[in-house]
Write a protein that binds this DNA or RNA. Structure first.
Length: 889
RNA sequence: GGGCGCGUAGCUCAGUUGGUUAGAGCGCCUGCUUCACACGCAGGAGGUCACAGGUUCGAGUCCUGUCGCGCCCACCA
């Protein structure tokens, strides 16, 4: 069998599976029985997985598209209607840029046609599909944000909500992005701490000589002021009650109103009220029935209402307003001031609060059951501290502005009558206005927030509103895996919509993983330019290595730091697996052993008794360890402790299987080409380890497993279809583990002596191992192993160690004495002195504890006994060390 | 302002309910071309677990405070 010295993932990965990098699922394509979908990381009790977020993906959409493209047509492109939407959007934006087109001015129809063309072109990479375990379903159906099925669901939900009075249209102060020309939800606004000014401006009191001073960060909005407010209990301004002031520049008379809006502590205690351009002022305006004067329009330009300033850009207007005020002597002072500037999440343009007519969802009635569901434990968060965050948000939830003035997305199923202005909401385009029966109707040009359709994802992907078999089988699913950054955008809204329309929560558990960070702990993002390109690193290190690196860092509740170093060491691990296999294959070839995976019931083969010959110590030991490893890995996966699972596997395979087991087996093979039991056990353990590793490293394990299987029985199926190793209590072999530990200690002692005494690494050492009873027997039985792994020639003696031992190492169980030339004795003295010091410390520490009466009385007896036992060990070791030290002088 | 979280080896992080000598990977030092693997093997150094109190027989782990750092939400004329 030909097998290279170094594992090259690029050669083997494409061969097996279209893969899915992080954690959800992947597809095995070469299976004769047809495509099979296996759940990789989520625990076995998961019946279906809603999974979109991915450690790399959700931080870097652009890369996602590239992942997909690389994966090819039959790739399972895991879910996310909305992310398909976002992906589509990005493709579209890029294409537009390439063709030098502006979205605006293209016209909706032409635009949509173009988008459709591109979607067809990119369809394979950005299609959205629902994934489930072990069932066949219609994979060919493409579910774009704008496709039929989803559109139906969206319209249905919108209409139902509307009929229940949960959707309404209203004039509202919205966050408006003058660049994107759309309203933004609160969540899409980001705050940026910025340096600004606080301008103090005089407003003359009508008919009097004095004036009030107001402070503002946005002087241009004063053109739209329709009142000034003072706090009702602010006695400084009691005289102003019922008065009016003259608005500078506009020469308009505006009232002084009493309102809590004014904070006596801040500034001068007088605040200007601009209902059309500030959310708080808007509310105050409603309280006092103030007119709304709109001085800034949707493009950020001053309107005709701004008088002399009409037509200016809002920032230019600010300068000119300030200059004009200054010229009139109304500018009192300008203070530097830092404040949070609200900006558009997408383009970072300063958001303009504007009044506009938008569609809203009333969230309170939806949020209440969603809160209860979590309170009652119908949904659990992992890690659970996210529950608190969830509650925090849900209990303070605000109505959700769902209309967007964008091109892509689902159009709102509402039609405006051009004759009577009535709005008709319907599933299909209505023929007539419901009020005046006019046929002169026009559909609302707005589209829905992309998260609106995302919120329906758990059921819309399964055919809702039809009562499909999928819905029956898979709703609710058991697990949602996602990142915390979309907890509110997506998760909370799925819960609300799920309960509202399905009457049940959409998933039972929500696993919230960390975000991928770079070495500087920065969130990866395109703007920072610190993205690790998945294509590049996968090419470089292999998918398996990238997966392993991600998982090793995936402790719940923490972010994932992904570094080149970590991926490099994961690649080394893959190479280690590869070379362990290489060793096996070469030896099998040499010995004429047929590679053979024990029949499907591999677990049965794990029984030592299955061998015709008595298993050797190392066999009993490794089978016991394998069993423990399986136990630990299963438990870790079940509790979402992926990093722990990865680490357990790593340690078992590398440091137990390779470092000890294989090394000992080398000796067996060297002696006699191996016995049947040697081969059988080794293959069993290796094969089981592959299966245990498979979810983490699907490709290399599949490749090796296939190679093992191909020499054996019939045509191989996929490793992913084989059973996952689980814990079998009867396989735990404590005596074997104890004996092996002892054997390891003997060998390590000899190696340490050699290194510490700087003895020739190539030379075989002579020495005597003094031990009694069982230990002596073990050493006797494993003499060959000891001699070979430690490169020594030891005699085993049951007698007492000689008083005049030259160099050695003592433990409670044995005393290892090595013949060393005179010139190495100084080194021996140094190590003995160090050892003695350490032991003295330990002895003193243990004695102090045991001397503490209250400790002995109150601590559980096993703890006290443990220390007592340790103490006597330390003491005897210390004694031996001192003796040896004495012998040297 | 409200909420969540972090501070453990040079670096990146683990450390499940408090219990014997606090772990891993990378890096570092020493030695080794040992017939699977130098993406390797063997051995080793390195930590007063941010600081100060408290609870406890016993604290990296629980409580309080201080300092430093991060994130989320709300808001600021």
């Amino acid at each position: 069998m030909e097998i290279d010295k170094v594992y090259e993932p690029q050669r083997f990965e494409p061969r097996w599976a279209q893969w899915w990098v992080d954690s959800g699922l992947y597809q095995v394509t070469d299976n004769p029985a047809g495509p099979v979908y296996s759940l990789v990381i989520p625990p076995p009790n998961v019946t279906g997985s809603l999974h979109m977020g991915h450690m790399l993906e959700h931080t870097e959409i652009d890369s996602t598209i590239r992942w997909r493209r690389m994966l090819g047509e039959s790739t399972l492109w895991l879910p996310g209607t909305d992310h398909a939407g976002i992906a589509t959007q990005m493709v579209v934006e890029r294409k537009l840029a390439e063709e030098g087109l502006q979205r605006r001015g293209l016209g909706r129809e032409a635009f949509e046609k173009r988008v459709w063309d591109w979607k067809k072109q990119y369809g394979d990479t950005i299609k959205t599909q629902m994934v489930r375990l072990g069932t066949s379903c219609d994979w060919s159906r493409e579910r774009f944000t704008m496709d039929e099925g989803l559109s139906n669901a969206v319209r249905e939900v919108f209409v139902l909500l509307y009929e229940k009075g949960l959707v309404y249209r209203g004039d509202y102060m919205v966050n408006w992005c003058p660049r994107c020309h759309t309203a933004l939800s609160d969540l899409e606004v980001v705050y940026d701490e910025s340096d600004g000014n606080l301008w103090h401006i005089k407003y003359p009191v009508t008919g009097e000589k004095h004036h009030v001073v107001i402070a503002t960060t946005r002087p241009e909005t004063m053109l739209g002021d329709t009142a000034v407010a003072i706090h009702p209990e602010d006695e400084r301004y009691a005289a102003l009650h019922g008065k009016t002031v003259r608005l500078p520049l506009m020469n308009r008379e505006i009232p002084v109103v009493l309102d809590e809006l004014a904070d006596p502590e801040f500034g001068t205690g007088v605040v200007k009220v601009t209902p059309a351009h500030d959310p708080n002022d808007f509310e105050a305006g409603k309280r006092h029935d103030l007119p709304k004067v709109k001085v800034i329009d949707e493009t950020g330009t001053m309107t005709a209402e701004a008088g002399a300033f009409a037509g200016l850009d809002r920032f230019e207007a600010r300068k000119q307003v300030v200059a004009a005020l200054d010229a009139e002597g109304l500018l009192v002072k300008v203070d530097a001031y830092r404040f949070g500037l609200s900006k558009c999440q997408r383009c970072k343009t300063v958001v303009e609060p504007l009044i506009s007519r938008q569609w809203f969802v009333k969230t309170k009635p939806l949020a209440e059951p969603a809160i209860r569901a979590v309170e009652e434990g119908q949904i659990q968060f992992v890690p659970e501290n996210w529950t608190k965050t969830y509650f925090e948000w849900m209990r303070n939830i605000r109505d959700w502005c769902i209309s967007r003035q964008l091109w892509w997305g689902h159009r709102i199923p509402a039609w405006h009558c051009k004759d009577c202005a009535e709005v008709t909401v319907a599933r299909q385009a209505p023929e007539r206005c419901r009020a005046c029966s006019s046929t002169n109707l026009e559909q609302d040009p707005d589209v829905l927030d992309t998260w609106f359709s995302s919120a329906l994802w758990p059921f819309s992907t399964m055919g809702w509103p039809d009562e499909t078999a999928d819905l029956k089988n898979f709703y609710p699913t058991s697990l949602l895996i996602t990142g915390f950054d979309i907890l509110f955008f997506w998760v909370a809204r799925m819960v609300m919509m799920g309960i509202e329309f399905m009457g049940e929560v959409p998933f039972r558990q929500v696993y919230i993983h960390g975000l991928v960070r770079d070495a500087e702990k920065q969130k990866m993002s395109k703007t920072r330019g610190n993205t690790i390109d998945p294509l590049v690193v996968t090419e470089q290190y292999g998918t398996d290595a990238v997966r392993m690196a991600l998982l090793l860092g995936a402790a719940p509740g923490t972010d994932i730091v992904l570094t080149e170093e970590r991926m490099a060491s994961a690649r080394a691990f893959a190479n280690k697996i590869w070379n362990a296999a290489r060793f096996l294959f070469l030896k099998m070839e040499y010995s004429g052993v047929q590679p053979c995976i024990p029949e499907d019931e591999t677990r049965q083969a794990l029984r030592p008794s299955a061998s015709t010959l008595l298993p050797a110590l190392e066999d009993r030991w490794i089978l016991s360890r394998l069993n423990r490893c399986a136990e630990q890995v299963n438990r870790s996966l079940e509790s979402y402790r992926y990093h722990e699972a990865a680490q357990t596997l790593w340690h078992f395979f590398w440091h137990e299987f390779c470092d000890w087991y294989v090394e000992i087996k080398k000796l067996r093979f060297f002696e006699n080409s191996g016995l049947n039991s040697d081969w059988r056990n080794m293959l069993t353990v290796f094969e089981s380890a592959l299966r245990l590793l498979h979810p983490v490293m699907p490709f290399i394990t599949e490749e090796l497993w296939q190679r093992l299987a191909s020499g054996g029985n019939g045509h191989p199926q996929s490793i992913s279809l084989s059973s996952y190793p689980t814990y079998l209590p009867e396989l735990t072999d404590l005596p074997a583990e104890r004996e092996m530990a002892l054997l390891q200690e003997i060998i390590t002692s000899a190696r340490t002596l050699r290194a510490d005494l700087k003895l020739d690494p190539r030379a075989e050492l002579n020495g005597v191992l003094y031990a009694r009873g069982d230990v002596a027997q073990l050493a006797q039985a494993q003499e060959a192993v000891i001699n070979s792994l430690a490169r020594v020639r030891l005699q085993i003696s049951e007698g007492p160690a000689p008083q005049k031992a030259a160099a050695g190492r003592a433990t409670p169980e044995f005393n290892l004495v090595i013949d060393v030339p005179q010139e190495h004795l100084e080194a021996q003295r140094q190590r003995l002195e160090k050892e003695t010091q350490q032991l003295e410390k330990l002895v003193a520490n243990s004695r102090r504890q045991l001397g503490d009466e209250s400790f002995c009385q109150r601590a559980p007896s096993h703890v006290v006994e443990g220390i007592r036992a340790k103490l006597s060990e330390y003491e005897s070791q210390l004694e031996k060390s001192r003796e040896a030290l004495g012998n040297l002088s």
